[in-house]
Deep mutational scan, measured.
Amino acid sequence: CFKERTRHLLREWYLQDPYPNPSKKRELAQATGLTPTQVGNWFKNRRQRDR
């Protein structure tokens, strides 16, 4: 489970761009302490949920 702060950051970025490029994923991974793969999976799952 991700911390509330991490989820908030991910949601904020998702609203700006639901399809982040690899450099954005790396930047967000550094900001949250997650791996770029975890960030990518979160975005993928969130896009699925929004369908």
Results as ranks from 00 to 15, higher is better:
27 E>H: 03
27 E>I: 05
38 Q>T: 04
11 R>T: 14
41 N>W: 03
50 D>Q: 11
33 G>W: 02
12 E>Q: 08
3 K>M: 11
39 V>R: 01
38 Q>L: 02
5 R>E: 14
34 L>W: 06
32 T>Y: 02
14 Y>S: 01
44 K>G: 04
4 E>D: 13
44 K>P: 00
40 G>K: 15
44 K>M: 10
18 P>G: 02
31 A>F: 15
20 P>K: 03
19 Y>T: 12
10 L>C: 05
48 Q>I: 13
12 E>Y: 07
26 R>W: 07
23 S>L: 09
11 R>Y: 14
23 S>H: 06
5 R>F: 05
13 W>I: 10
43 F>M: 01
11 R>N: 15
14 Y>V: 02
3 K>Y: 05
51 R>S: 05
26 R>Q: 15
40 G>Y: 03
31 A>G: 05
45 N>R: 13
17 D>K: 01
21 N>E: 11
44 K>E: 13
35 T>Q: 03
21 N>C: 12
14 Y>R: 02
34 L>M: 13
11 R>A: 08
37 T>D: 14
38 Q>C: 03
12 E>L: 07
26 R>M: 11
43 F>T: 01
24 K>H: 07
12 E>K: 06
10 L>F: 04
4 E>C: 06
27 E>Y: 07
47 R>E: 02
6 T>K: 08
7 R>G: 10
32 T>G: 02
28 L>K: 10
13 W>E: 12
26 R>I: 08
49 R>V: 07
9 L>I: 15
27 E>V: 04
18 P>H: 07
42 W>A: 00
6 T>Y: 07
41 N>K: 15
45 N>G: 07
3 K>F: 12
33 G>C: 03
40 G>H: 11
48 Q>E: 14
27 E>C: 07
29 A>T: 00
9 L>W: 00
26 R>C: 14
28 L>N: 00
50 D>R: 03
11 R>I: 14
38 Q>S: 02
30 Q>Y: 08
18 P>E: 03
1 C>F: 14
51 R>W: 02
18 P>C: 09
29 A>L: 01
46 R>K: 11
42 W>V: 01
19 Y>S: 06
26 R>Y: 08
46 R>G: 01
14 Y>A: 00
29 A>V: 03
47 R>G: 03
47 R>K: 02
4 E>Q: 09
33 G>Y: 04
30 Q>R: 08
51 R>H: 10
6 T>V: 15
49 R>T: 10
42 W>R: 03
43 F>C: 01
33 G>A: 04
10 L>P: 03
44 K>V: 06
43 F>L: 01
11 R>D: 05
36 P>K: 09
47 R>M: 03
32 T>V: 09
20 P>H: 04
45 N>Q: 09
21 N>T: 15
25 K>S: 07
29 A>P: 01
44 K>R: 12
9 L>G: 01
23 S>T: 07
27 E>G: 03
29 A>C: 04
47 R>F: 07
40 G>S: 15
41 N>S: 09
18 P>A: 08
24 K>V: 11
19 Y>F: 11
51 R>Q: 13
10 L>V: 00
35 T>C: 00
2 F>C: 14
49 R>G: 08
25 K>N: 07
3 K>S: 15
8 H>M: 15
51 R>G: 07
9 L>T: 11
2 F>W: 08
33 G>E: 04
21 N>G: 10
40 G>F: 15
5 R>Q: 04
35 T>H: 03
21 N>D: 15
8 H>T: 14
15 L>N: 15
25 K>P: 05
37 T>R: 14
17 D>Y: 00
15 L>K: 13
28 L>G: 01
25 K>T: 12
46 R>A: 11
49 R>I: 07
9 L>C: 04
45 N>C: 08
22 P>L: 15
19 Y>K: 10
26 R>K: 13
11 R>E: 15
46 R>F: 06
40 G>V: 05
48 Q>N: 14
21 N>Y: 04
39 V>F: 02
51 R>V: 06
15 L>V: 14
46 R>V: 07
2 F>Y: 12
18 P>Q: 10
29 A>N: 00
12 E>W: 08
28 L>S: 00
4 E>T: 08
31 A>E: 11
21 N>L: 11
8 H>P: 02
30 Q>P: 01
40 G>D: 07
16 Q>M: 10
1 C>D: 12
24 K>P: 02
4 E>K: 12
36 P>L: 12
5 R>W: 06
34 L>D: 01
6 T>G: 10
35 T>S: 12
25 K>A: 09
3 K>C: 13
43 F>I: 05
24 K>A: 13
16 Q>E: 08
50 D>W: 06
5 R>H: 03
4 E>F: 06
45 N>D: 10
20 P>A: 02
38 Q>R: 02
3 K>L: 11
47 R>D: 02
51 R>K: 11
27 E>L: 07
41 N>M: 08
34 L>P: 03
40 G>T: 11
35 T>G: 01
44 K>H: 02
8 H>F: 12
37 T>W: 06
29 A>D: 06
36 P>I: 12
38 Q>M: 07
35 T>R: 02
33 G>K: 04
16 Q>L: 15
3 K>Q: 08
18 P>V: 02
7 R>I: 14
28 L>D: 03
17 D>P: 02
9 L>V: 09
49 R>Q: 15
5 R>K: 10
30 Q>V: 13
19 Y>D: 12
25 K>M: 12
3 K>W: 09
38 Q>E: 09
15 L>I: 13
12 E>R: 06
7 R>A: 14
24 K>S: 11
27 E>N: 04
23 S>P: 10
24 K>E: 11
47 R>L: 05
7 R>F: 10
15 L>Q: 13
35 T>M: 04
17 D>M: 02
20 P>S: 04
13 W>H: 13
12 E>V: 08
10 L>Y: 00
11 R>S: 12
47 R>C: 05
30 Q>L: 10
25 K>V: 14
18 P>N: 04
42 W>C: 00
30 Q>H: 10
50 D>L: 00
10 L>D: 04
42 W>S: 01
39 V>E: 01
22 P>H: 07
5 R>D: 14
41 N>V: 10
42 W>M: 01
23 S>M: 10
34 L>Q: 04
18 P>R: 07
31 A>D: 01
2 F>R: 08
11 R>Q: 15
6 T>E: 05
2 F>L: 13
40 G>R: 15
42 W>T: 06
48 Q>P: 03
10 L>K: 00
49 R>C: 08
11 R>V: 10
32 T>A: 06
37 T>E: 14
40 G>E: 13
26 R>G: 09
6 T>W: 11
27 E>Q: 03
23 S>G: 09
8 H>Q: 15
10 L>T: 01
38 Q>K: 05
2 F>T: 15
41 N>H: 08
48 Q>Y: 15
34 L>S: 04
15 L>G: 12
15 L>W: 08
26 R>E: 14
7 R>V: 13
47 R>V: 03
51 R>A: 09
9 L>D: 04
17 D>H: 02
36 P>R: 05
20 P>E: 00
2 F>H: 13
34 L>G: 03
6 T>P: 11
48 Q>C: 12
6 T>S: 11
9 L>S: 03
28 L>I: 14
26 R>F: 12
15 L>C: 15
3 K>V: 06
